[in-house]
Simulated scan of single mutants.
Amino acid sequence: MTDIINTLAGIAAQDPLDKLRDHRAQAKDNAQLSFEALLEPAETGGFSHRDRYAVAAFTAGLLGAPAAEEFYRDLLRDEDEVASWEIAELLDEVLLELDSRSTVRGPYGTFESAALAAENVPGPWLSVEKKSSEVLGAQLAAGLEFAHLLVLHPRDSRPEHMALLLDAGWDEDSIVTLAQLVSFLNFQIRISTGLTALVHAPATTLPPVSDEPPEAGDGDGEATSARDSAASSKGSEALARVGERVSTYPGLTRPELFQQSGLGWVPWIPSPRRT
């Protein structure tokens, strides 16, 4: 199979940049194997190829990677052309809202620790509308909302989001694969974007990006608060329905500030079964 990172970056076989990548042959091979395991597995379980390509195209769009978005939409089009166009329309709506309501493209979110409140950044959430859900299905719609969470609201992740996925029909193994897929795409797209920059000199100088949190417009705070409240209620209801399938660890002691020492780790859902 053609090396996908080279494809996304526009690097031909035996190109000097391809030979440069060969200096880290194991990293190059593992990146390709990760693509094959996550996007082209022989056995898909409860996470179909169609839904994997849809999540990949949507994630690439959120990350501002048009080459990767088109690549994965082409794969999706071969599986479900209607879904491919629906993903494109959904991305247009999401990105338009991001641009109209915020001066930065994430990451957004609220830290649980009050000591980090000064670093909180408000930003829009995604709730897939009924029209898109009817085309894509409830399970994929929930998966896209989860991908949006991981890309743009990682600090807002809560056990309730596992419950929402379970409630929409995802099983525990597929949820882990979904999270791995979104994480891998972040890696793949960053590598291919860096290589593309080496292949093509930038045509223009990009304007500086502000590090300041975006300012909410008139009435925006109330609308955001209402959406956050509705999303929280939806997650709490889902958590109640799935019961012990999601662990919340109410007595867990969490750090109040960033620290360099090691952290313990506990899962919200069980690790995938090994066969």
Rank of each mutant, 00 (worst) to 15 (best):
E112I: 13
S113W: 14
S113C: 14
A114M: 15
A115C: 10
L116H: 11
L116K: 13
L116M: 15
A117S: 15
A118Q: 15
A118F: 12
A118I: 13
E119D: 13
N120R: 12
N120I: 13
P122N: 13
P122H: 11
P122I: 09
P122V: 08
P124Q: 07
P124A: 09
P124L: 07
L126I: 12
L126F: 10
L126G: 09
S127K: 10
V128W: 00
V128Q: 00
V128P: 00
E129T: 14
E129N: 14
E129G: 15
K130I: 06
K130F: 04
S132C: 00
S133H: 00
V135S: 01
V135Y: 00
L136R: 00
A141L: 05
A142S: 12
E145C: 01
E145T: 01
F146K: 07
F146L: 06
A147W: 01
L149C: 02
L150F: 06
L150S: 06
V151A: 08
L152N: 09
H153M: 11
D156G: 06
P159R: 04
P159I: 04
E160R: 06
E160H: 05
H161Q: 12
M162P: 02
M162F: 07
A163K: 01
A163N: 02
L164N: 02
L164A: 03
L165K: 05
L165R: 04
L166T: 06
D167Q: 12
D167I: 01
A168G: 02
A168N: 02
A168T: 01
G169F: 03
W170S: 03
W170F: 14
E172P: 01
E172I: 09
E172A: 09
D173Q: 11
D173G: 10
S174R: 02
V176N: 08
T177A: 09
T177H: 07
L178A: 05
A179Y: 05
L181N: 05
L181K: 04
V182Y: 06
S183Y: 04
F184V: 06
F184S: 07
F184C: 05
F187R: 07
Q188G: 01
Q188K: 02
Q188P: 00
I189S: 05
R190C: 04
R190F: 08
R190T: 10
I191M: 13
S192R: 07
S192V: 08
S192P: 08
S192T: 09
T193D: 09
T193N: 10
G194D: 13
G194V: 11
L195V: 10
L195C: 11
L195Q: 11
L195F: 11
L195Y: 10
T196L: 15
T196K: 15
A197C: 08
L198G: 11
V199M: 15
V199C: 08
